[in-house]
Structure formats: C-alpha cells, structure tokens
C-alpha cells in the first residue's frame, strides 16, 4: 500500500491505496465520487475525464499514486458551493446536450478545459478539442452547440 495525499474538489484526503489503484477507482470507491464514471478500458471514451492540477486527464489512465500531492477536480466539484451551475453545465442542459448522461461528466470536464484554454473557439476548434470523448446518444450535434453557447456565455460574463 502507498500513502497518498490528494486534494479532491477542495478537500484534502490522506489515504492508503494499492499502487495499482487507478485514480478513477480511487475517486469512485474510496471517496464515493461516483459522478465520475468508467466507459472503456483503452482510454478512448473520456467518460472518466477529471482535472488534475487544472488540466483535463482521463482518470482511468492515471494511477492514484500519481495524483499524490496534486489537486483533482471532478464533476461534483464544478458547481459553486451554493449549487450554482457553471456556464458549461447550464449550456449542456439548455442545449439538450445529453440524453442518457453517461458521457456527460467527462464531456463537461473536457469542455471546461477547452474553454479555459480557448475562450472563443470555432466549431472546428470544439470538434477537435472534444475528440477524446465518445457519446453514443446525441450524435454530438447538441454537445458542440452547448460548448459554443457556453463560450458565448463566458464571453458575456467577462465583458
């Protein structure tokens, strides 16, 4: 077992983990952060996307021990303490960018990262920036629309 200290959604946890424990399993099983889900085993689907030190990563492709001393944000830590949704979350609902919702946490985390990097993306930027997240329900049409709408909303916020 290895001892790790990880800050997740603003709270610091000190835990013992097996070195082989994947970050996503640590989040789900040890911390109960079940908002982050597993959709594949080859790091293709992006459903498990979280932020590690502010950048999006696939948490199935990171060991919990690698996160030792780092900061993780999951879908559960995105909304404000008062429950206020982020512009990306709002846009996903408003644009009907989810159906079954299984890919949604990963999509929202990746979109959030994308907009942090590029606040004013074109449709092509969005399509390329979201290529690591698979969705089987929406055909992506409304996901792309939501990310663009969120970009607009963010632009409005900062104006």
């Amino acid at each position: 077992m290895s001892k790790i200290s990880v800050k997740v959604d603003g709270v610091t946890y000190e835990d013992e983990v097996e070195p082989r424990t994947l970050l996503v399993h640590y989040l789900r099983e040890q911390l109960g952060k079940t908002g982050t889900v597993v959709g594949c085993d080859t790091s293709n689907c992006g459903a498990c996307t979280v932020h590690l030190d502010g950048r999006s990563v696939k948490s199935c492709n990171v060991l919990a021990v690698q996160a030792d001393g780092h900061e993780v944000t999951t879908i559960e830590g995105l909304a404000g303490a008062d429950g206020a949704l982020t512009p990306v979350q709002e846009a996903f609902r408003d644009c009907h960018a989810l159906q079954c919702g299984y890919c949604t946490p990963g999509m929202i985390m990746q979109a959030t990262d994308l907009l942090a990097e590029n606040p004013d993306p074109t449709e092509e930027d969005v399509r390329l920036g979201m290529e690591g997240n698979l969705c089987r329900c929406t055909g992506y049409h409304n996901i792309v629309k939501a990310v663009l709408q969120a970009a607009g909303a963010r632009a409005g916020e900062h104006a």
């Binding site: 908002g35 879908i75 919702g101």
Partner: peptide
C-alpha cells in the same frame, strides 16, 4: 429543458455500478 439533467450534469447520478 429536461428534468433528468440536473443530476446528470452535476454527477449526482445513480448508475448501477
């Protein structure tokens, strides 16, 4: 706008796993 979405976009989901 869907009633289902609030829990799905905030990670308060109820998947079997």
């Amino acid at each position: 706008r869907r009633k289902e979405d609030q829990r799905l976009i905030t990670g308060r989901t109820r998947w079997t796993d």
